[in-house]
Write a protein that binds this DNA or RNA. Structure first.
Lengths: 196, 196
DNA sequence: GTCTATACTTGGATAGAC
DNA sequence: GTCTATCCAAGTATAGAC
């Protein structure tokens, strides 16, 4: 990424605009103006506006996950570390949608691209979870009938499933915002059943 | 205003959109959708987008000034009442600009219209200030070599002049926001000299 | 009063000059 | 790599039917 400073500038410009205006209301002229490029030149670096958007979300997500790992490790109890990490993943998704003011239609349109982002970070997340679980088993905090790696994977997909179910069931407020608090509660209840 | 409920609905819809998206990023479709009207129908009630905008600002300003008067009267000291009222007027202007995310270009374009708004509320504000000053003189808190009404008018124009000077001198941050703290400080220093 | 149809302008995206 | 020119879709605004 660092090799291409111009691309970084575009991402920075995009981040500012999407956070301020949301996806719909941001124009390529807006981004180009801040990045110091003609809007046509943006197409040399990205295929379209959506690609700039997911690149921004990707960079933000990676930074967020690194931060999340640190914060999770600050908890004294391994169970709490796992619970925090998994529930924050869900909350974070709602935050991104809220921050970028994605409309209901656009959210559905962009969701496959979001999944792409999560696919890329998935491995790193599952590895981290596996470490946590192994530590918990070693400390006799809990135990499983299966290897930690496969339990970690299951937990990861569980949190994703709850996230997606919430979006598709359309549990939203007047403003078009999605309420993930139900999903997080469900997750925590399930975790109490699984981790013991 | 109350006689025309449809016009009120449009204003309400406009207020929501301008606060969320800013002037540039709000479309007539956005407003029409919320107000339950075709965008073309908006032109029956308003000449254009700008006119909806200043009508919103006008309504908000009137409500704000009524609120301001109440809050000013809550101060025990008459000097503080005057100082609060005049400095809050300035701060408020910055808030409107910030809230509606007016770009530098559009701010300059719309400023004459803003002045129109302030022209309409001017009388009510000066009358209120006159009352405050008269009360202060009667209580022997301070005295002037001129009638309270003309001092009130002078103070009002002083606060407006500081407001405009700040905008034109372009004392803005990276984001295009205007910093009125200097103007408010100047005002307070001047008030200490005038009111005694 | 509210709508459809339409003229004109701005935004997303592509082609091609340099 | 970056720009101008250009296409098509969406936004502002007007004209006129109902």
């Amino acid at each position: 990424m660092k090799e291409n400073p111009k691309k970084e500038e575009i991402l920075q410009a995009g981040r500012d605009c999407f956070a301020r205006f949301g996806f719909d209301k941001t124009t390529l002229d807006d981004i180009g103006r801040i990045a110091g490029l003609n809007k046509a030149s943006l197409y040399y670096y990205f295929r379209n506006k959506e690609e700039i958007f997911i690149a921004v979300v990707m960079a933000e997500t990676k930074a967020h996950i690194a931060d999340l790992k640190q914060k999770a490790l600050a908890f004294p109890d391994v169970r709490k570390q796992v619970r925090f990490f998994l529930s924050e993943r869900i909350r974070r998704y709602g935050e991104v949608i809220h921050l970028t003011r994605l409309s209901v239609e656009n959210r559905q349109k962009l969701e496959p691209l979001f999944d792409e982002v999560y696919e890329e970070t998935k491995t790193s997340e599952i590895t981290f979870l596996t470490e946590l679980l192994k530590k918990g088993v070693a400390d006799n905090a809990f135990s499983f009938p299966e290897p930690s790696a496969s339990v970690a994977e299951s937990l990861f997909y569980l949190s994703d499933a709850l996230k997606h179910e919430t979006i598709r069931s359309g549990g939203r407020f007047i403003t078009g915002e999605v309420d993930f608090s139900g999903a997080i509660e469900k997750l925590e209840r399930l975790l109490r059943l699984i981790i013991r």
